[in-house]
Computed example of a mutant assay.
Amino acid sequence: MLDTVILLCLGIITAALLLTFARLIKGPDLPDRILALDTLYINGIALIMLLGLYLDSNLFFEAALLIAVMGFVSTVAIAKHLLRGNIIE
């Protein structure tokens, strides 16, 4: 039962990834594309977590944690660049 629910959620998250990627390509301006990129890595984390549950492996959870940290740092750096023009003061 849990396997079928995880597979269903994998399909839904994959559809969300595809729609977010379309927004990343089509986005009318830069802040929309940055928000799509932020959503893309969050959806990627969810996909990796579900894959780790399905395959019963702890390695996927560590990879998701690393992606979450790198995604947060990159989002802060991009936002700082948009606001001030430089990242390191």
Rank of each mutant, 00 (worst) to 15 (best):
H81N: 14
A63W: 04
I78W: 00
Y54T: 06
T75E: 11
G71W: 11
S74Q: 11
D38G: 08
G44F: 14
T4V: 08
I87W: 14
L35E: 09
A15T: 07
I88F: 10
L66R: 11
I78R: 00
I34P: 06
L19F: 15
N58L: 14
L47N: 05
F61K: 03
A46C: 12
K80A: 14
L10W: 03
L51Q: 08
A36T: 03
D32G: 00
M70A: 11
I88V: 15
S57E: 13
T20Q: 00
D56C: 05
A68D: 09
L59D: 11
I88G: 06
D38H: 11
I13A: 01
L17H: 09
L8K: 02
L37N: 07
M1P: 12
A15I: 14
G27E: 02
S57C: 00
M49C: 12
L82Y: 15
G44S: 15
D3A: 01
M49Q: 02
K26H: 05
T4N: 01
T14R: 00
F72Q: 02
N43E: 03
L50T: 04
I13T: 04
L8T: 04
L51H: 07
T4I: 10
A68V: 06
R23T: 10
G52Q: 12
T4G: 00
A16W: 05
L7I: 09
S74K: 08
N86P: 00
R33T: 06
P28E: 08
G85I: 15
D32E: 08
I6Q: 06
D29V: 13
N58Q: 12
N58I: 12
L18S: 11
L18W: 07
R23C: 09
V76W: 01
I12V: 15
L40H: 05
T75K: 08
L50H: 03
R84P: 01
M1S: 12
L10I: 11
R33C: 04
F72W: 03
I67S: 05
I78H: 01
T14L: 04
M1F: 09
D3C: 01
A15W: 15
L66V: 09
L40E: 06
F72C: 02
G44L: 10
A77F: 12
N86S: 13
G71K: 10
L19M: 13
T75A: 13
E89H: 10
K26V: 09
G11R: 11
D56K: 14
I12P: 02
R23Q: 13
K26Y: 01
R84Y: 12
D56F: 12
L10M: 15
L66C: 09
L53I: 13
E89P: 15
A64C: 09
Y54G: 00
I87G: 09
V69A: 08
Y41P: 01
H81K: 13
A68F: 02
K26I: 06
L40F: 15
T4H: 02
A63D: 12
D3V: 05
I25W: 03
L8I: 04
T14D: 01
L2Q: 03
D29Q: 10
I67G: 04
L65Q: 05
T39V: 07
L66P: 00
I45D: 05
A68L: 10
A63K: 04
F72S: 01
D32L: 02
M49F: 01
